[in-house]
Design a protein around this nucleic acid. Structure first.
Lengths: 83, 83
DNA sequence: GCTTTTTATCTTGTATAAGGGATAAAAATT
DNA sequence: AATTTTTATCCCTTATACAAGATAAAAAGC
């Protein structure tokens, strides 16, 4: 399952995708944490249980991974139900 | 400027896009708040100053607007520098 | 199997977001 | 321009995310 262009509807899905991106880049939680100024445990929490983490934090992580997001209507191309 | 497929790199950009989606649907902050079980003022804050709002809240709002997000590498198609 | 690395989970203290309630300010409608 | 609707901003209390520090648990490497 490709992480790319995967439609995300829940915090947990986002956490999983961020974890995938980090692994793709061969980075440890500690390394990423350094980049964004967070302790390793916070990266862990963000990947596993991100529901209550702040947007600021998420966007910092996205930047560190050279990623961005796009908002679109549900059911647009890439929807699993069409795969 | 079209909200659709607009690359988002900051919480504020996301807030603005969410506001745009809401207006497109002709919904007031109060109406949207009803849908997601939040008072109007919280919607206001989320649109204007979303940095410290939680993912859970954002995804609730996305659902109420029938939207989803996608994560992708920066500089992918749709990047303003290519427009 | 043992060691090292990586990730997950505790505790405690502190800062701040959330939410009710109220209201000011701004925009829209007539 | 007056009224109604919509949005932004106060106060106050409560709940909880955050952070540091420590450590357990799991994975990877030898």
């Amino acid at each position: 399952m490709d992480m790319k262009n995967y439609p995300i509807k829940t915090p947990q899905q986002l956490g999983a995708v961020l974890q995938g991106c980090r692994k793709t880049r061969q980075l440890t939680q500690a390394k990423v944490g350094e980049r964004v100024g967070l302790p390793q445990k916070e990266i862990s929490k963000l990947e596993l249980n991100p529901a209550n983490t702040s947007l600021a934090r998420v966007f910092k992580l996205l930047a560190a991974l050279d990623m961005e997001i796009v908002v679109r209507e549900r059911g647009a191309s890439g929807n699993p139900s069409e795969w």
